[in-house]
Design a protein around this nucleic acid. Structure first.
Lengths: 186, 186
DNA sequence: TCAACTCTTTGATCTAAGTCAAAAAATATA
DNA sequence: TATATTTTTTGACTTAGATCAAAGAGTTGA
């Protein structure tokens, strides 16, 4: 299990003073499978680091539960639009396994960025990584068959099948669960 | 027309020293409609700010020209995955109108970030904006009809129809140009 | 260990949107 | 102004994948 402090150190090297300050501010939560960290309509004030477990973001569209993305341990999760704009979220964040998550608020981060420019660099690097991943993943996505989309997902996220159920995976790549079931049994 | 310096100042306030340094480093190019700024297979070393005109990113998939996104003036463009990882790009960047673009290289930005933390903040803010936009735009995209996708695009990019042709717009939202033509004439 | 759920598979049918092809309109070129 | 080239529209046909429905597996908990 990687702690949030050591995760930061994979990107930038930070002083003991910074480590202490982050440790003092950080909120560590043990949550159970099914627990909701963020509800639709609420402002997402926090960005979460998953030390253990899995989270998913999802929303309701035309009455259906649609998984937006699934996040394994050792990754950061928030409702980006809500977190960055301080507007109500249109999505939920839920634990899909018993999990341990660490978080800081948007406000705390702004203060840390100003006080320690090295953390601003960490922030930039994390965002760069997210964008590079999105940019790469979705290239040509529209014109792939359902099978190609599924194979792409499995290639970037090999243990997805152990961590999420059929319905979640299907909606995450934009296909019906019946189609995904047929792809698997091909 | 907004210059790149004044664009930066919309996000952070910068000293005359920084302005001078950026002005000295910046490459300003006048390019014609159809000109290619980046080719597939080349490493994208620059990030472009469009002072005037329009650029599009595109790639070939199964022999077809697919527009990834279209960028109007006053926005920043790069092939994110290639630029950030220094790996060959899988896409092209092309001017779709006569344009004026300013750019700095990845290496120049790294030096500027280290020398002036305020620019690192600018970098972070730009990336946050990109992510918030992507996050908001694509929510529920998979389960929209072609008409809904087109209406969403027009709502965030009202003058798209004046700046790009039918085929570019259709592939940008993942539909065939015949379908888009039918939507318009509904 | 047997109900009561929940999740996954399978089959039959339907439909939105893709493909192919050709005409029409718009734009550029000479 | 006629001609070539590109872009858009329209029509006929096809198809991948959605939807609906029901059966089968797998889990959970009293």
């Amino acid at each position: 299990m990687i702690t949030f402090i050591s995760y930061i150190q994979q990107y930038v090297s930070i002083s003991d003073e910074i480590k202490k300050e982050i440790s003092d501010l950080i909120l560590i939560e043990n949550i159970s499978k099914g627990d909701i960290l963020l509800e639709e309509g609420k402002i997402c004030k926090r960005i979460y680091f998953i030390e253990k477990g899995t989270l998913r973001t999802y929303f309701y569209q035309k009455g259906k539960d649609i998984t937006y993305w699934i996040y394994p341990d050792n990754s950061m999760v928030t409702s980006w639009h809500s977190y960055l704009s301080c507007k109500p979220s249109s999505e939920y964040i839920q634990a899909t396994e018993d999990s341990i998550v660490c978080s800081l608020t948007y406000t705390q981060w702004q203060e840390l960025y100003t006080k320690y420019p090295i953390l601003e660099r960490f922030g930039r690097l994390i965002l760069e990584e997210v964008i590079a991943l999105i940019d790469d993943f979705y290239k040509g996505y529209y014109f792939m068959s359902s099978k190609e989309k599924y194979e792409l997902l499995v290639s970037v996220f090999p243990d997805i099948t152990q961590r999420a159920n059929l319905g979640h995976i299907a909606s995450m790549i934009g296909i019906s669960q019946e189609t995904l079931s047929r792809i698997r049994s091909n």
